[in-house]
């Protein structure tokens, strides 16, 4: 869809994200995920085709008012405090002053930043900045949340908190589009995923439809040593089956698709 001089960052991408669902956009670095997100936000423009959100263009500020965006890195002014940052973004959203103060404090408290509310962002840790990002994305109670790498640079505890938060968004009927490299987490969170490579969508659909075998032939094994596991794997292969880790299901699919695509040279 986007045509640069030397590189087509996103090519013939068609995505339908139903309202109230959590959609995971997966792909290796440079696959066009962030470009897709920027096009959704009107920050980049497709050379052909179009994007509609709530039936309107992302270039329309009224549409963007209904979208919350968490960037892939904390691109905020370091000289502001947490409270000032939310005040700044709240004003851009046109939230009335008293409402804004109340909302800012509630969001900062919700994301565990109540103590750091008047601290400059330059003194925030990476995890704190990420939580502040969530708070700013949630300002104005948007209907769509676009989360670009929400778990990037966050420790495992923080990552699981992100999972809890996204689930809560789904429960509140929000539509969520997220990019993540933590595929196992995405698997548990998303209603549907799209796998991208070299700007093209390789596969899309619900987790169930993407995973082979349905699940009847799967077996979970616990408490064995590495050599025992290897022996079982060999036995499974000799019987025409295969043994694999359940936790890596989606990752496996992902890797297979990307490697196959790379081998084919990216031909459509």
């Amino acid at each position: 869809m986007e045509k640069g001089h030397y590189l087509r960052a996103v090519d013939k991408l068609t995505l339908n994200i139903p309202e109230g669902s959590v959609f995971g956009l997966l792909g290796p670095n440079g696959s066009g995920k962030s470009t897709t997100i920027r096009m959704l936000l009107g920050l980049s423009e497709p050379s052909s085709g179009g994007i509609q959100i709530f039936g309107g263009s992302a270039k329309d500020p009224a549409v963007r008012r209904r979208i919350g965006y968490l960037p892939d890195a904390p691109y905020y002014h370091k000289f502001l405090t947490g409270r000032e940052l939310l005040r700044f973004f709240g004003r851009l959203l046109g939230i009335p002053k008293t409402d804004l103060e109340r909302q800012s404090f509630a969001l900062l408290s919700q994301f565990g930043l109540a103590d750091a509310i008047d601290r400059k962002l330059g003194a925030y840790s990476k995890g704190m900045l990420q939580r502040l990002g969530f708070a700013q994305a949630m300002l104005g109670d948007p209907e769509i949340l676009i989360l670009d790498e929400p778990t990037a640079g966050v420790d495992p505890v923080g990552a699981s908190e992100v999972g809890v938060f996204v689930r809560s968004l789904r429960e509140r009927g929000k539509t969520v589009l997220l990019c993540s490299h933590l595929l196992t987490q995405v698997q548990g969170l998303c209603d549907a995923v799209g796998i991208m490579n070299r700007g093209r969508l390789l596969a899309a659909g619900s987790i169930e439809t993407l995973l082979p075998g349905g699940g009847n032939s799967r077996l979970a094994i616990d408490g064995l040593t590495e050599s025992d596991l290897n022996e079982i794997a060999r036995l499974a292969e000799s019987k025409g089956g295969r043994a694999f880790s359940i936790g890596d299901d989606l990752e496996d699919i992902f890797r297979k698709l990307v490697i196959a695509d790379d081998k084919s040279g990216g031909a459509p």
Partner: peptide, 9 residues
Amino acid sequence: TILPILSKP
């Protein structure tokens, strides 16, 4: 820092 700003209305 322009990215989160322009993503707002």
